[in-house]
């Protein structure tokens, strides 16, 4: 059995006086691929930011081993850097990585060396996201936080992104926290799921065990049918 990496007890996040996450407790073991699932407005992104220490919180957040964190934030895409004369090589230079080292990581996500000289803002959505994964992995994290990593990418591109992330998870023995509202992702890629809802209902466990139609309907506030194959 794996060791517990993170212990979250009575966790609460309040923004502008409104409780967004309240009284949440769960453990994450080393090597888990945990998907944080929930409808819009259920506090997924807020929870991730609080776990990362980007938002204030109350309750206990105990890392049993010092994490080296990598983070793919929501909303960072090629448009965010389009107005900058920033090549992919420049983007890697922001974290003081040399060309050869950057190229190694880019090749690991299926990009070629010609991408180094391209303007980051003019990559396609999928290319940018792959570049960003390479960039984040270049810090050699052992814990990866992903916030909707495929929103700016089409379905085929999304599959590629998740395959790459899954490969990195396996090869580098990462612990992954992945935010999504896409049920397909949970069943296809996660070892564990933590569901949040706007109504305070929760679930935590292995996806096939905890995501029953009744739980899903509780979480999403409507009748949801999902077929696992």
């Amino acid at each position: 059995m794996s060791e517990i990496l993170l212990e979250v007890r009575n966790f609460q996040v309040t923004l502008d006086g409104s409780p967004i996450v309240s009284d949440l407790s769960f453990n994450v073991e080393e090597g888990e691929f945990l998907t944080i699932l929930g409808p819009n407005g259920s506090g997924k992104t807020v929870l991730v930011k609080a776990l990362l220490g980007l938002l204030p919180h109350s309750g206990d957040l105990i890392w049993h081993r010092e994490p080296r964190v990598g983070y793919l934030p929501q909303g960072l895409n090629q448009m965010s850097v389009r107005d900058l004369p920033l090549t992919v090589e420049d983007f890697f230079a922001l974290k003081k990585l040399q060309r050869a080292e950057a190229l190694n990581f880019l090749m690991s996500v299926g990009l070629k060396d010609d991408v180094l000289k391209m303007r980051a803002g003019y990559l396609s959505g999928g290319e940018f996201q792959r570049m960003l994964i390479a960039w984040v992995l270049a810090s050699r994290p052992n814990v990866l936080f992903l916030d909707e990593p495929t929103t700016a990418v089409d379905i085929a591109g999304g599959e590629t992104i998740y395959s790459l992330l899954k490969e990195a998870w396996r090869a580098q023995k990462l612990t992954v926290f992945n935010v999504t509202h896409d049920l397909n992702i949970v069943f296809a890629h996660s070892t564990h799921v933590l569901c949040l809802s706007r109504f305070g209902r929760r679930c935590y466990g292995a996806p096939k065990e905890v995501l029953t139609p009744a739980v899903l309907s509780d979480i999403y506030g409507a009748e949801i049918r999902f077929y696992t194959h």
Binding site: Y71, V81, L84
Partner: peptide, 9 residues
């Protein structure tokens, strides 16, 4: 470019 990304780095 992204303040939160910078913080986590």
């Amino acid at each position: 470019i992204h303040e939160d990304l910078a913080k986590t780095e």
